[in-house]
């Protein structure tokens, strides 16, 4: 049905010695909707492919509804993809673990959610929240090692003094502290990949950067790789090695963070960047290059999903979805303005 639109090779950092830990190929999710026969489909995610190396951060940016959380939930195996492959430590896990994720996958790929409160049980102490995964995944030898390990993890995420924090309940913690507990809980099972879905967007602005700095420290010291999902492209630049832009469930552009922000190629990426508040440039002085709102994802028409808003739209855009074009080292884009102009994947 679909053709590979992007190989992991096009994604890999040219000279990075680090091994690829997680790779997804043509990940696709459709949700049936509509009347009695559920005959219509929401195309939430279409043919998304990428790889994450050890200790590397890939940011996924895009507006609300672009499919970011869907991608994370599929990789966390909270739901099954319509098609596509997930390859973890070389294993095609949708094939080898058909009945759901194995214990080793679930400890290797952890998820942190946007709302740190929603992911905690108000009747259990912090210690309990971290002991559970330690026990389930057999991460300590003896019972007597449990509490010391909890304290060690709390100290790692900057929650001091750990013995005090361990005895608290979720409502006794601030949002930032709760998010740190969520990170400690994820760390408890020695993950290689952390899927972080807007981990700071619900925190007070003054404590957001502290949580990002913590995640950066764990990347450097433990070698954790992240899929960092965010609305905030400036925070992606701060934290991520590479950025991928999603629009209407499709990959539009990807590059090293500085390259993507410094030399955006796709008209949608340019629009996104032009809309970020910038105190040094007063409002109204900059042209907004496109207006309008994202398209409906229910049985979308063929062609480029950005065509309805794109200031540079051509006839071919409404018929053919553009293929991936590599335009610079580690920088690819899907847009008919680049390459031969007619190449593409007919939908």
């Amino acid at each position: 049905m679909t053709k590979t639109v992007l190989t992991a090779e096009q994604w890999k950092l040219a000279e990075s010695p680090d091994p690829v830990v997680l790779e997804v190929r043509n990940l696709t999710k459709r949700f049936p909707v509509g009347g009695l026969f559920r005959s219509k489909q929401v195309h939430a995610l279409t043919d998304v492919s990428f790889a994450i190396r050890r200790g590397e951060v890939l940011a996924v940016v895009g507006e609300s509804g672009s499919g970011k959380s869907t991608a994370a939930r599929l990789i966390a195996r909270l739901m099954e993809p319509t098609s596509g492959e997930i390859i973890f430590r070389g294993q095609n896990v949708l094939q080898t673990e058909k009945r759901g994720a194995s214990l080793s996958y679930r400890s290797g790929v952890q998820m942190i959610f946007q709302d740190p409160f929603g992911s905690m049980n108000p009747t259990h102490s912090v210690a309990h929240h971290i002991m559970r995964p330690l026990q389930i995944h057999h991460k300590v030898e003896r019972r007597s090692d449990l509490l010391p390990r909890v304290h060690e993890l709390l100290a790692t995420v900057g929650l001091n003094p750990p013995a005090d924090i361990a005895n608290k309940y979720p409502h006794e913690l601030s949002g930032g502290q709760r998010q740190r507990v969520a990170i400690a809980r994820a760390l408890a099972v020695d993950p290689e990949i952390v899927l972080a879905d807007e981990p700071i967007s619900m925190l007070d602005v003054s404590i957001r950067i502290g949580v990002l700095n913590l995640m950066a420290k764990l990347k450097k010291e433990i070698g954790i790789g992240y899929l960092y999902i965010t609305h905030d492209i400036a925070s992606a630049r701060y934290f991520a090695d590479r950025i991928m832009v999603l629009y209407a469930g499709q990959m539009m552009e990807g590059a090293d963070s500085d390259e993507l922000i410094g030399n955006p190629a796709h008209p949608y990426t340019k629009l996104l960047l032009s809309a970020v508040p910038n105190p040094e440039v007063a409002l109204g002085q900059r042209e907004v290059v496109a207006r309008g709102e994202p398209p409906s994802l229910i049985d979308p028409p063929p062609g480029c999903p950005f065509a309805a808003r794109c200031p540079q739209v051509k006839d071919v855009c409404r018929k053919v979805m553009p293929d991936v074009q590599t335009i610079a080292p580690n920088h690819w884009v899907r847009c008919h303005l680049y390459g031969e102009g007619t190449g593409g994947t007919a939908a």
Partner: peptide, 20 residues
């Protein structure tokens, strides 16, 4: 010092310690 910038040099930000 809590808002990463989109342009200019990448600095390590410190934010504000503690919480409100």
């Amino acid at each position: 010092a809590s808002f990463p910038a989109l342009v200019g040099p990448k600095e390590t930000l410190t934010g504000i310690p503690g919480s409100p």
